[in-house]
Amino acid sequence: GVCDLTRAEMSSNGDVDTRMAEAEHASKVLGLAVRTNLGLPDRGLYVTPEHVAAVTAEIRRHAPKIVFAPYWEDRHPDHVMCSKLVEEAVFNAKLRRFMPESPAVQVE
C-alpha cells in the first residue's frame, strides 16, 4: 500500500481533486491493496511529535514488512521532511512503550 502524507493543497501542478484522482488512478494501475492519506499540511511537514505519531500509527495500523520513503536529499522540502518523519516513525513503531495503546510492529 501507499500512504500519502498530504493532499497536495499547495501544488502548482493541479488542485486537490486532480491530485486525488491521479492517486486513485495510480493505485488501480499499481494494484494497491490500500491507499491512505494522513491529511498533514502541504508545505507544513515537520518532525513534530504530532506528525511522527500520525506516521507511526499508520505504520502500526498496516504492519508493513518494508517501508519506503523519499530519498533524504531532494529539492522539495516536504520530500526531505517526509523522509525524516518516516525514519523517526519506523524506529518508534517498534518501541513497545511509544504509544502503548497501539501495538508495536517489526519493520525493516
Rank of each mutant, 00 (worst) to 15 (best):
F91A: 03
G14S: 13
G39F: 05
A89V: 03
G31S: 07
A21C: 06
E9Q: 14
L32Y: 01
I66M: 06
E50Y: 02
I66W: 04
S102E: 13
G39C: 10
N92V: 00
F98Y: 14
E101V: 03
A54Y: 00
L30G: 12
L95Q: 09
L45W: 03
M81Y: 01
L40N: 11
V80C: 08
R60F: 00
S83I: 00
S11P: 13
A89S: 11
P70I: 03
V2M: 11
A93N: 00
R19M: 11
D42K: 06
E108F: 04
T56A: 03
A89T: 02
A21Y: 03
G39T: 11
A54K: 03
V80N: 10
R75Y: 07
P100F: 00
S12H: 11
G44C: 06
R43C: 13
F68H: 11
R7K: 11
C3V: 15
L32I: 00
M81C: 11
V90H: 04
A26R: 09
S27V: 04
A33T: 09
G14H: 12
D78H: 09
V29Y: 08
K28A: 15
G44Q: 06
E22Q: 12
T18E: 15
E50H: 06
Q106I: 11
P77L: 04
E9P: 15
H76M: 06
M10K: 15
K65I: 04
S83H: 06
V105K: 01
E50P: 07
Y46P: 08
T56M: 00
M20P: 04
L40V: 06
T18I: 08
M81T: 08
A54V: 05
D15Y: 08
S12E: 09
F91M: 03
V55Q: 09
A57L: 10
L45Q: 13
G14I: 09
P103G: 05
C3P: 03
A54F: 01
P70S: 12
M20F: 05
H51N: 08
H51W: 00
K94M: 07
G39K: 10
A63P: 09
Y46Q: 12
V105Y: 01
L95W: 01
R35D: 05
P100N: 03
P49H: 07
A8M: 06
V107G: 08
E58M: 07
N37K: 10
A104F: 00
V86K: 02
V16W: 04
I59V: 12
A54L: 02
R35M: 07
R96Y: 05
V47E: 10
V52G: 05
D15S: 14
G14T: 13
A57W: 01
C3T: 15
E50A: 15
L38Q: 14
P41S: 04
F68E: 07
A89Q: 03
D74Q: 04
E73V: 14
L40H: 07
A21L: 07
P49K: 04
S102C: 14
K84E: 13
E101H: 11
C82L: 02
V16H: 09
L32F: 03
A26K: 08
P41C: 04
I59H: 04
A53N: 10
V107L: 02
V86M: 02
